[in-house]
Design a protein around this nucleic acid. Sequence first.
DNA 1: GCAAGGACGTA
DNA 2: GTACGTCCTTGCA
Length: 972
Amino acid sequence: MHLLLVDGSGYIFRAFHALPPLNRKSDGLPVGCVQGFCNMLYKLTTDMDEGEPPTHMAVIFDHSGKTFRDTIYSEYKAHRPPAPEELVPQFPLTRSATRAFSIPAIEMEGWEADDIMATYACMARDAGWKVTIASSDKDLMQLVEPDGSIRLLDTIPRPGQPPLRWIGPNEVLTKFGVTPDKVIDVQALCGDSVDNVPGVPGIGVKTAAELINTYGDLETLLSRAEEIKQPARRQKLIDNAELARISKQLVTLERKVPVDIDLDGLLRQPIDPSTLFPFLKAMEFATITKRLGNLLEADPDLFEPDPELRAGGTRDIGAPKKSADLSVAKAKLAANVVPGTGPARFAAEEHARIKAIPVNYDAYEIISTPEQLAACIARIVDRGHFAIDTETTSLDAQQAELVGVCLSTAIGEGCYIPIGHSKAGDLLEGGGLVDGQLPARDVLAALKPVLEDPSILKIGQNVKYDMEVFVRHGITMAPIDDTMLISYALDGPQYNGLDILANHWLDHKTITFGELAGTGKARKTFDQLEIAPAARYAAEDVDVTLRLWHVLKPRLAAENATALYETLERPLAPVLARMETRGITVDRQILARLSGDFAQRAAAFEAEAHELAGEKFNLGSPKQLGEILFGKMGLEGGTKTKTGAWATGADVLEDLAAKGVPLARTIVDWRQLTKLMGTYTDALPGYIHPETGRVHTSYSQASVLTGRLSSNDPNLQNIPVRTEDGRKIRSAFVAPQGKVLVSADYSQIELRVLAHIADIQALKDAFEEGLDIHAMTASEMFGVPVEGMPSEVRRRAKAINFGIIYGISAFGLSNQLGIERSVAGEYIKTYFERFPGIKDYMDSQRARVKVDGFVTTLFGRKIQFPNANSGNPSERAFVERASINAPIQGTAADIIRRAMIRMEGELKKAGVEADMLLQVHDELIFEVPEGTEDQAIPVIKRVMETAAEPAVRLSVPIQVDAHAARNWDEAH
DNA sequence: GCAAGGACGTA
DNA sequence: GTACGTCCTTGCA
């Protein structure tokens, strides 16, 4: 008899890092480990059959939950990060795979797979059988028998090695330095950082083996510890004897698990094609299906894919999970995906297939009866995923009224459900609703269950918008996938809109909103449109969205962008949706008072300017101003812009003012005040929502090259702060009664990132010691002590530090500091000398962008520069500077994204009430109940400061400063 | 009515 | 020297 035990859980975890990522091609479900697992079972059944074929077989899995080890030692396996997101759906699938191969899948509550395997192995050995354990887990090495009756077989795929590798007593000796029966004693001493088994601190495998080989076993060693010569080692063993004993209990496998199935129950069964092939076909494993077809001499084509498991079935493929750690990204980068094979080929084939399906407007459907609606929802439930789009009266999700909902469950389909199309009315009264529409309440009530069903994936283009519309109707959409964000993760912001994506990937021109609703003054809102043309437009959009999803999603796996999308894009969208929905309170009175004040002062400046110029002119016209300054007044030193106009920017005017031209100063002052009025004091009140009374910005998650967010309508990321008048505007952002605002900002995040990425020891040391980084730089460069340093010296160093981040040039630095080009060049040279590593970093980025056409952030975000090899020298120089800046700015952006994604959950876990309202690149603004800020701030700081972990361990400390106050100016 | 350019607010 | 969005004027349709 020969028993084969397969370590199912161990295989999945190890194979995950060893195998290239692979998604099921029709819906992106990650299945790489499942496929590897099936290949392994196939290998075991074929290769082993050549030697001594197993007569009995089982696959053993870990059961989730606590085991007896947790009661012995509460920290056991406490360091384990949660399973990577892509792995989670593969756990149940490997069990399904096992059953598909007609092999018992065994797991038992309260026991680890290792204990169950130990139990069966000992039972079989005692019965005189041979035992093979397919596992590379070192914890199982204690079971190996010197006589070969129990052996391990390593089945984890490793490049350049045979698929199956035996582990016997010799291999155990190599690994632990002892015979198998003493493995647990060695493990008790050296511990295990992966499982968090403590061991004796400071004793590694080698020392442990030496000690055990000298004293025979752990207890003898501990009782004779006094005899050990080395004093440090002796003391460690005496002090930690108990820890060693606990460790031994943790690593010792239980060999008497009360198993339900006896050995006879593990007798091998012939594979049943009618269970095997439906599974393999549902997984879309073509190669292995073919191989097993040959092996079993059966025709796979006779079987249909398992309906429970087929693509888009009811399986949950989208529920939000804990973020994957960097090992995902690293494994993928290491996977070295070759175009034309594996996932890359899938993606290419899928693209070609989808692109070939023509758009057919006649196939679209308008839902006007409850029966049609019910049928549509039944299709959604059956498919498990669908594309959705809302049609509304406004681009502003907070103001938009729902006019229709459009759904697509399959390519070529589109169901438009009109609910808010209105008859033309007069000015005072709307004309009521057009006939033939289901009541909005009924439609929303019917959609709510599927929109909130965690097992049904909702696919959209810019889904954040639809989420916000639905949440105003009491519906929380989840889980979601977003074609815009997938495209952004893959290609950056270059193609954003649905129309552009459709044109680029599907070679299809969609109906534009302008064609449908008119442009300019004649533009109708969606509710004023006829249902039929509106339905065509809407249905085409969801159809195209679903097609794009099929094209783009497989590219994530093919192009190593899954981790980026899953950890930094997809989970952020709902967070932003909630921030936008919350909005922030802006005090109308403060703005009104400021506006009056600014207007008066601006009027005075305007009169003064006319006086000084000797004529009336439009101060807002750079053209007129240039003609007055450099034409009429004949001033020297005017420069022209690239279009030939006189340059009249603030820097030019400051120069003139310094040379004694009072008009220039007047204009600068006037411009500042009118800017503040036009952009802030006059414009912001118009953004106060009539119902919430708050200002709701909209964040764009997919429009910045480096991975930053941008904010618009209104832009709340450029609220003034530098000037005194500007800060008065900031003070109009307030907390409501009973609350305070908390502002938490990263200190010098980009310089810290630079210190880490470029590995600049001097910078790292300075941050570690908490020094004033600009003063330190100045001191290094100019040899001036930090004590009593003139502010001008520090200012120069600060400008240089920023310059470095921006991809410094002598030209730029000389402009910034108002110094000679040659002097600026000397500064840069000195900087490179004082901070070796900076130049190497810059050169490496310049080289990368020329070779690859992109650079990357620490978290794997690619920043593309298509014209890195442009024939235009100034364009090339620009790309060089941008490619130096992008990894720094982008890594900082990735870090704060991670903080935002974790923030709400951590606040909740800590029992702290705090609403995240705004993000300003390196700053987060919260609204917190007054008096609780001291509880909120430490949590906020911790989440932000540890946001890079565990994916990246920065070699510099991250520091966050946080303050609470009634308004944003004081909190900042 | 719309797009481009200049200017300027932020990190 | 990097990354954005908005306001205003200008010039052309």
